[in-house]
Write a protein that binds this DNA or RNA. Structure first.
Lengths: 196, 196
DNA sequence: CTATTATCTTAAACTAGTTCAAGCGGTTTT
DNA sequence: AAAACCGCTTGAACTAGTTTAAGATAATAG
């Protein structure tokens, strides 16, 4: 077996158990790919064809609004799935850029292969049902707790929760992820460091 | 068969097909309940026990932030599912109020019954997998397209998309759903009506 | 039908965060 | 080693949306 795929199998088997035969079928649709820093995984105009599970590295997804401003939608490192999920689910052209922030290795599973296997393997369908329900619930929950927070509180909470990302990702990207200007984040960091 | 449950079956069979036996098992876990205007379906401190599918009426879910302000999270009418989804999924006490906006009839399916049936019936697991994936993708997509919009643009787009809700739901609730003060929404509506 | 309470409107003062602009180090390209 | 570029900082002017407050209108209970 390709041991490099073990992290993906571990992730899935945290939620469901697969038989030997099912594991084999799953591994058969997996492909490992590498991306260089600044390379795009998805980009506007192209349909997002894969679910991508990060083995090593970091990605971010972002879009550019009508006034030309960048908005970072997701920051993903090891053990996260990343893509323009709307494009993947609807199989229509992407609106997001999904860009490597470091040299990255990931596992790709094609849309049709996943859909086929979900129809065939009940446990896999359950894996995606359960994890997507959880991801949906958590994402809403997080969005809500952010709603009544100041920009400073949002940054402090996020940095405490994802110190690894705070270290590896540029301040400009973090600001656009947290919904503020880089200038304002700079001011916040100055204030924080002067306070303690 | 209980014909009042037909809308729910239609909704499910838009995505998957169920055998006669599967339909029977599903209907066996469904209960129809009615709520009076202003009655709570979920509230902070109590675990959300059901998936609720609205047959007739309207609900909204909201929370109260540390400064005492209400934020409406979801507005739901006929054919929508409604609950404190985070509480339902994690089976921990709710943080949201889910309150009837009109006298409402809905179908309730208990958490344990659903989880049991999803393990048993592959098609049902697929129904929830597919619809949750879509709901997740669409909710992110909508959140993004709202990000770079003014309060006025958000209201105009929302009202054009959900005219029915715009008619039935109070302006105060709509404002808190769209993330602005009722005063500001009032100004927007005045401006709109003076423009055309 | 009347009293009460909630919703909607309007306007003036206010603020969190943006925009613009300029300068500073570091790093990639030539 | 220069040139061009990128990310970070700093400050002053600005604005979309909030806050506060008070009056007008509508809904609901008794």
């Amino acid at each position: 077996m390709r041991t490099e795929l073990q992290p993906l199998l571990n992730q899935i088997q945290r939620y469901v158990s697969l038989t030997e035969g099912e594991i084999e079928k799953l591994l058969a649709i997996c492909e490992v790919k590498t991306f260089r820093k600044r390379q795009f995984l998805d980009q506007p105009g192209f349909v997002s064809g894969y679910r991508n599970y990060i083995l090593k590295g970091a990605f971010r997804s972002y879009f550019i609004d009508p006034e030309g401003k960048e908005h970072t939608v997701q920051i993903a490192i090891e053990d996260w799935f990343v893509s323009d999920f709307y494009s993947y689910i609807t199989q229509t052209p992407a609106t997001l850029f999904v860009e490597a922030q470091e040299d990255t290795t990931l596992v790709q599973m094609a849309y049709k292969d996943i859909e086929g296997l979900c129809k065939e393997i009940h446990a896999l369908s359950e894996y995606f049902r359960i994890t997507t329900e959880r991801a949906f619930a958590f994402s809403r929950h997080r969005a809500l707790s952010g709603i009544s927070m100041s920009a400073e509180a949002r940054y402090l909470e996020w940095a405490a929760r994802y110190p690894e990302m705070d270290r590896r990702i540029s301040q400009k990207v973090i600001a656009s992820y947290l919904g503020m200007t880089p200038e304002f984040l700079s001011k916040i960091k100055k204030k924080i460091s002067s306070e303690c």
